[in-house]
Measured scan of single mutants.
Amino acid sequence: GEDLPLPPGWSVDWTMRGRKYYIDHNTNTTHWSHPLESGPSSG
């Protein structure tokens, strides 16, 4: 998808195989999909 801006506290990194993933430092979790690309989340 597009390179959307990341929310505060997020960063992007790549695996050893070159796969892009996103790090949420607020909750110390990692995600394969961009936080703003996922569907609407409630709460």
Rank of each mutant, 00 (worst) to 15 (best):
G1Q: 11
E2A: 11
D3T: 10
L4Q: 09
L4I: 10
L4C: 11
P5D: 15
P5M: 08
P5E: 13
P5K: 08
P5Q: 09
L6M: 05
P7T: 01
P7M: 00
P8W: 07
P8K: 08
P8D: 09
P8L: 08
P8N: 07
G9R: 02
G9F: 05
W10K: 01
W10L: 01
S11Y: 04
S11G: 06
S11R: 05
V12S: 06
D13H: 15
D13F: 13
D13N: 15
D13G: 15
D13K: 14
W14Q: 08
T15S: 06
T15P: 04
T15N: 08
M16F: 14
M16N: 14
R17T: 15
R17L: 14
R17F: 14
G18K: 04
G18Q: 04
R19E: 14
K20G: 02
K20E: 04
K20R: 09
K20M: 08
Y21F: 12
Y21D: 01
Y21T: 01
Y22I: 02
Y22V: 00
Y22Q: 00
I23R: 08
D24T: 00
D24F: 03
H25G: 07
N26L: 07
N26K: 07
N26G: 05
N26D: 04
T27S: 07
T27Q: 05
T27Y: 03
T27R: 05
T27G: 02
N28M: 08
N28R: 08
N28H: 10
N28Y: 05
N28E: 07
T29P: 00
T29Y: 02
T29N: 02
T29E: 06
T30W: 15
T30F: 15
H31P: 00
H31M: 04
H31D: 00
H34G: 03
H34A: 05
H34T: 03
H34L: 09
H34N: 05
P35I: 02
P35H: 02
P35R: 02
P35W: 03
L36D: 06
L36Q: 06
L36N: 08
L36W: 09
E37D: 10
S38D: 10
G39Y: 10
G39F: 13
G39W: 12
G39N: 12
P40Y: 12
P40V: 12
P40W: 12
S41M: 11
S41R: 09
S42D: 13
S42L: 12
S42E: 13
S42G: 14
G43F: 13
G43W: 13
G43C: 14
G43L: 13
